[in-house]
């Protein structure tokens, strides 16, 4: 595949980088990334991946755009209120970059559909807002051998980690089981500063891009935490030994996907 002059211009700032170059840009154009959740995390991730020329971007979300989303979900506009989020996200991504093919999945993920959903993608971004979905994505990715970026945001805080098959701990190594429903607040109950999704979702996009390029060090084996009020980033080392993990360990006890019960307030809005 040869670049058109327009593509050379569009991606010039990438191609100039020695870590990217023409080869790296081609890798991006041939890559497939799935974003689960077109919200606070998924919106900025989708924007940057589309702008970067990631050739195929899948986006999964069952919801419609709500006015209360617009404080942080920067891929949607006021005119999009009421529209399916995946449609609104697709329109914005295609408007940014016609090189990108956007595949939309208007659904809630569950144990019956996630394996099929992730199977054609090179990297998965968890932009969901509840523990059942986050554990489901982890388990499905571990079982299918797919790399993914986990993240969570709340109030003025955010965190993320990257899982790559065979390279260190998964989400379940760190957090064994979802907390009982309603025991730990989600953003709907607790609030979140809009720019937090921008910071953490952009970092997730960066991890996906680095994974595709095969350059630099990924956030595997670490949890990166960000406290905006203290203006503090911490890269916390996670235990190396994951042999005892229930899903990615030597003798997994979880071999089937689990649909955990959603908190009562989240019943209508899973990722």
């Amino acid at each position: 595949m040869a670049f058109t002059n327009e593509q050379l211009e569009r991606y010039s700032r990438h191609i100039i980088l020695k870590e990217v170059g023409a080869k790296g840009q081609k890798k991006l154009l041939n890559a497939k990334v799935l974003i689960i959740g077109a919200g606070g995390l998924g919106a900025p991730a989708a924007l940057y991946l589309a702008a970067a020329g990631v050739g195929t971007i899948g986006i999964a979300d069952a919801d419609e755009v709500d006015l209360s989303n617009l404080q942080r979900q920067v891929i949607h506009t006021t005119a999009d209120v009421g529209k399916p989020k995946v449609e609104s996200a697709r329109e914005t991504m295609e408007a940014i970059n016609p090189d990108v093919t956007v595949k939309t999945y208007r659904l809630y993920i569950d144990s019956t559909n996630i394996t099929d959903l992730i199977k054609d993608y090179d990297f998965i971004i968890d932009g969901t807002d509840n523990f059942p979905a986050k554990f489901l994505i982890n388990d499905a990715c571990v079982m299918a051998g797919k790399p993914f970026s986990h993240a969570g945001i709340i109030r003025f805080k955010g965190q993320l980690m990257t899982y790559v098959p065979g390279q260190g701990p998964c989400y379940r190594c760190v957090f064994k089981e979802p907390p009982p429903k309603d025991a730990v607040p989600t953003c709907k109950q607790a609030g979140v500063i809009g720019a937090m999704g921008g910071v953490i979702g952009s970092l997730q996009a960066m991890e996906a891009i680095k994974y595709i390029l095969g350059t630099g060090d990924l956030l595997t084996g670490y949890l990166l935490t960000y406290d905006a009020l203290k203006m503090e980033f911490r890269k916390i080392k996670l235990p190396k030994d994951h042999s005892g993990c229930a899903v990615c360990g030597d003798e997994p006890t979880i071999t089937k996907l689990i649909d955990y019960e959603l908190p009562s307030c989240e019943l209508k809005s899973q990722g």
């Binding site: 670049f3 002059n5 050379l8 211009e9 991606y11 010039s12 700032r13 191609i15 100039i16 170059g21 023409a22 080869k23």
Partner: peptide, 18 residues
């Protein structure tokens, strides 16, 4: 000659990569 800076260098760089 059909592109402007910085695409000039980018186009040459891409050709060299090949």
């Amino acid at each position: 000659t059909d592109v402007v800076c910085p695409t000039t260098f980018v186009k040459a760089k891409v050709a060299l990569e090949e």
